[in-house]
Amino acid sequence: MTLLEAIENPFKPKAARIVRHYDLIKDHRFFQIRHIDMKKAMSFSYNPGQFIMLSIPGVGESPFSISSTPSRPGILELGVRRVGKLTESLFQKRDNDVVYIRGPYGNGFKLDKMVDRDLIIVAGGLGVIPLRSILYYVLDNRDQFKRVFFLYGARTPNEFLFKTEFFQLKNRKDIECLYTVDKSDAEWPHATGVVTKLFKNIPEIDPRETTAVVVGPPVMYKFVIDEFLKLKIPKNQIQLSLERRMKCGIGKCGHCAIEHLYTCMDGPVFTYWDTLHFRELI
């Protein structure tokens, strides 16, 4: 059967090595991984907002957003929360251990809708992991975008991811970073309160020339989108990323279905306008 060799099996994951890892906060770990096949490592191209399927043989496979930027090829970065079977086994891995990955999957953020516009990026909780990709992409291609606002809210200072990195970003002049926590402590140097409170710090924008991006826990979307709408940003210029259970990543297993769409192929990034047509919302 010659066809057998001819068809590349899209389910077959490729070996990748954990290059480095460290804990972001409790039960949240940062991983840098690289395809063992160097050619694959360098040619692996993706968009911010896409995800990979990561396998540990015998344990299973799960989707994870790519947190690194395609503008720095070679190494893929992930931020992983320990919640169950696969993530538990991943947390047992050490540097140089091998995992298996396939992808990239999903559509990613619509970059063409951001170029030459102001950009407002709003992250809540774990949502900052995929948004970190677009953030660095934008900073690496800074001249393509107008003003950039990065709003990030966590529940407590101890749950604030990428603290060192993001605090340093605050020193940059070409991006406005606004951070908040719901409940602060004595050492917390930034705002306190829910992320929507940060909107008052955004100067006047031209809504037609602005693209907004939001990723966070399901409950957050409604409130943040309301703020975008108050700023009069058109619904199709608001992008968000949805999470669904995923078993295949390529539109076969059905698990990520939202009505007749498959989040893994038709998403995970949708515009707010798209989601208005979904009866089962976020």
């Binding site: 299973g60 078993k247 076969k252 059905g254 698990h255």
Partner: peptide, 28 residues
């Protein structure tokens, strides 16, 4: 016309890394 399936990994009963990835029908 229901296409949905799920996937599960099964180790062989040994100390080595050996086993299979199975797929079977699922339902929403």
């Amino acid at each position: 016309t229901c296409n949905c399936y799920t996937v599960t990994d099964v180790f062989d009963v040994t100390n080595e890394t050996r086993g299979r990835r199975d797929r079977f029908w699922d339902s929403c």
